[in-house]
Amino acid sequence: MLLNPGILALLLGCSLAFAMLLYAAWLGLRILSRWDPQSSSEAQLQLERRTYLVSTLTNYAFSFEILSGLLFIFTLEDIHSLFIGAMCATGTLNANQIGWLVLLIKIVLFFTAAIWVHFNRLDQRTEDTPLVRPKYLGLLLLTPLVGLDLLLQYSYFTGLQPEIITSCCGSLFTLGSDSVASELAGLPVEPTMLTFFLAAGIFLILLVLCLSSKLALFRYLLFVASLGLFFVSLAAIVSFISLYIYQMPTHHCPFDMLQANYGFIGYPLYGGLFIGCLYGLLPGLAQLLPKTLSLHIEIEKTERRWLLRAFFAIVIFLLIVAGPILLGPFILLSY
């Protein structure tokens, strides 16, 4: 195992977060089994107090889990030089197959934990906290995921040996081999570009529609559109956005752009995409929540903020993507 301060911080933080979540989940289980909003008994009062503890613990733990994704990528970038054949985080991830799984779980956790935190905040603003049951069910589902994240991270980091020969992004994202990565890299540029800008356009139009109308349908559509945009964008990053960023017709790596060589442009790019899609998902999901009056008022109040955040994040993302395509000297489509 490599004793790197980042790895230590990740493992320490994730174990503490998991411990906090375990305790919160146990409390949540007890609250769930005895929760009775109609009652005004002493026991119910105690339970209501406990909910504050649960949400505080969970807020902290989930906030860390969300940040840990960033620290994880940061650490991967930092230690890639230890491995033969690694040029960027791809190499570090390849050094041990579990790496990709950890990354996947981190991405899933980013969305689910952020959704949980936002709905928890909504719930706490209301008087009657109607979301207690769905929230705690969600918590019980997410806790094992965080545990799995910790376990996989542990086995990933302990399994890293500096002598391992890994493969570089260049060999993973090349055309011609039959992996998902190379299929993404091999997507024809013109249709992918069209799909990507179409998806982004639909997303923005739906956002504007949601801002101006209260129709639930638009929000459901926006939910679908953000999911679509997320996956289309990831494919687009591998397929053509990376090419424009690196100004190189064969370089498809989605991680190199996080390096200092490219001015860390990957961080705002991915930040914009993730935040934009997250806030695009939220209004649609909020429509699925139980329709109590108090909750309805809160959703009305906060929804506008979500939509605006989604709008700005996606616009930033699109500007970073479109910048080199429109202004750069690199012309891919002429080949």
Partner: peptide, 8 residues
């Protein structure tokens, strides 16, 4: 990065 790790 070290500062972040230290903060963690």
């Amino acid at each position: 990065y070290q500062i972040f790790a230290l903060a963690g």
